[in-house]
Amino acid sequence: MSASAGLDSAAPLEPPVPTQKPIKTTGLHIGEAEPGCRKVDPILVVDNVRRTFGGLTAVDVDHVEVPRGAITALIGPNGAGKTTLFNLLTGFDKPDDGKWTFDGRSLAGVPAYKVARMGQIRTFQLTKALGLLTVMDNMLLGAKGQTGENMFRALMPFLWRNQEEENRAKALDLLTRFKLDTKKDDYAASLSGGQRKLLEMARALMSDPTLVMLDEPMAGVNPALTQSLLDHILNLKSQGMTVLFVEHDMHMVRHIADWVIVMAEGKVVAEGDPHEVMKNPAVIDAYLGQHHDEDIGEDPGTETENVSAIKELLDDER
């Protein structure tokens, strides 16, 4: 038998499974699970948010609510507007119009740093580790309300030394959980891509956020680390935080998400429980285009990435 044949016959790689059994939160919505449906206890409410780039409408969301205390996945094909929506909701970009509230407070026009201070913390799709700062300094930067961050009080270390020690202990604890504690004195630039994702997430947690928004937290993270990342995200929920994350890995979405919002071409096209929503024709349309062939995916030779994504969606064995 040739080597390549041996490879072909190898069992397909098992998708990562969280080591703890996720406890799904249910009963999040009111009425039908349809795009823009109301939630029992929404933390984030978005109304008529629109963002165009020249002639292209990147985001056009009529109404969407993100349930509190749950893990919500935001999915959709490339270019659906997920990252743009994240940027708008966190103050990194300004919409053409629209309004949205976080925890009952209106956020339209609020600058990014104030959004973060209110407890809505995000990470970036393209990781932003602060390369020439140590891993520990990256973490410490995440802590809120630091006395020593005032220029004049910075001159008087006795004012902030205790707080600094507390933050350091907390950072070390988080780094240990993310298996980065041995790296704490290295430059963040020396971390691998996956480790930077972990660092960015750990850093976001330094501020004890109420809503954590993760833009593709798993991209580039190896399967072993993915498992612990899934656990971390589940832990956030058990600690009372709300999680909204963008992800392309459908297995992961199905495993940890309590609710799924599907975007396509800037609009919310479907919402629902992760197992139900995948069967929604609107979702299949979103991934395959409106006029997809009836029998695609039969011939493995023509199988595109979108088709395999859909197969993943429909593959509900777990």
Binding site: A112, Y113, T123, F124, K128, K144
Partner: peptide, 12 residues
């Protein structure tokens, strides 16, 4: 290093 990252952490 990256001002957007710092902004995202709540610094003005």
């Amino acid at each position: 290093e990256d001002e957007d990252a710092v902004r995202a952490l709540g610094k003005n």
